[in-house]
């Protein structure tokens, strides 16, 4: 059955007709050509398809496109401003916290979701936030460091604004 859905994707209003069974992941990748979210397992086990829906990280392979009707979706393509990377992305680059890169967009979005709700996470909270994102290359330590550094630097910015 076809449904008309409306959602905001990376700040732009999107209106489309989709079948009931279409997954949000397929809607993003196939209909909108946003290929940053990857399919690693199709069962919500690997986290490569993580995007933010109303600010919360979700496995977009487990969400139907119709479930995102009326919501705000943020994918890795929506991060940063113009040519400037988001602080999380920049930190991952600076820390060499990626290798093959296939899990990276999902990790970036999980980290973004964490920092949106908690600007000053502990290391354990960072680990928990990305523990659903499988990575076979990096061994995770640099990824955790990279996210911790972003929260530390946003801390110092806050302090700066208070002075």
């Amino acid at each position: 059955m076809l449904h008309t859905i409306k959602m905001t994707v990376n700040g732009e209003l999107v209106k489309a007709e989709v079948f009931s069974q279409m997954r949000l992941l397929d809607f993003l990748r196939e209909e909108l050509d946003l290929i940053g979210a990857k399919e690693g397992c199709g069962k919500g086990e690997c986290g490569a398809c993580t995007v933010l829906v109303d600010g919360e990280p979700v496995n977009s392979c487990l969400m139907l496109a119709v479930e995102a009707d009326g919501k705000e979706v943020l994918t890795v393509e929506g991060l940063g401003e113009g040519d400037r990377l988001d602080a999380i992305q920049q930190s991952i680059v600076d820390n060499s916290a990626l290798q093959c890169g296939y899990c990276t967009p999902g990790i970036v979005m999980s980290a973004k979701g964490l920092l949106l709700r908690n600007t000053n996470p502990t290391r354990d909270e960072v680990v928990e936030a990305i523990s659903g994102n499988l990575c076979r290359c990096t061994g995770y330590a640099r990824v955790i460091d990279a996210i911790m550094q972003v929260s530390a630097s946003s801390d110092s910015q806050d302090e700066g604004s208070e002075r």
């Binding site: 290929i35 940053g36 979210a37 994918t75 890795v76 060499s96 990626l98 890169g101 296939y102």
Partner: peptide
């Protein structure tokens, strides 16, 4: 800095399935 980092961290890097 890795020369593939910017492409990969932005989701722009294309893999065969993309």
């Amino acid at each position: 800095i890795r020369n593939d980092a910017a492409e990969k961290v932005t989701g722009a890097a294309r893999y065969a399935g993309d």
